[in-house]
Design a protein around this nucleic acid. Structure first.
Length: 108
DNA sequence: AAGGTGACCGGCC
DNA sequence: TGGCCGGCCACCT
């Protein structure tokens, strides 16, 4: 699966610690393509096949569960986050700044 | 090959 | 984070 860009995104997503979340832009930035945050989201879309990718820990910069609509259950994403101790209210992560985790920038 | 799309971001009102 | 607009990059048909 080392075909392309997706692999990069997955590598970062897998590094997200338990009980922490990050944003698409942060991942994009770590990849060196900060402006293509959209591409990160697109990559996450394909992450449905990758069980190792905790896509539920990836939200937009506002801390809103923008991608929850793409999960199986309507509230699955929120359930997973709360299960990790992250408070979620109205599709928005509470204390987003506190649980936010910035991925390490790895230059390949 | 060209055009459309997307789980976004930043800027501005 | 109230809402709208443009840009940006890779993927798909």
């Amino acid at each position: 699966m080392e075909d392309n860009f997706f692999e990069r995104v997955y590598a970062i997503a897998k590094q997200i610690p338990y009980g922490r979340v990050t944003s698409y832009g942060a991942i994009a930035k770590a990849l060196g393509t900060a402006r293509s945050a959209r591409m990160v989201g697109w990559a996450m879309n394909a992450s449905h096949n990758m069980e190792d990718v905790p896509a539920h820990r990836v939200v937009n910069r506002k801390g809103m569960l923008s991608g929850k609509h793409h999960f199986q259950g309507t509230n699955l994403m929120q359930q997973l986050l709360e299960s990790e101790g992250i408070k979620v209210v109205d599709n928005q992560i509470v204390d987003f700044e506190k649980v936010f985790w910035e991925p390490e920038v790895r230059d390949l």
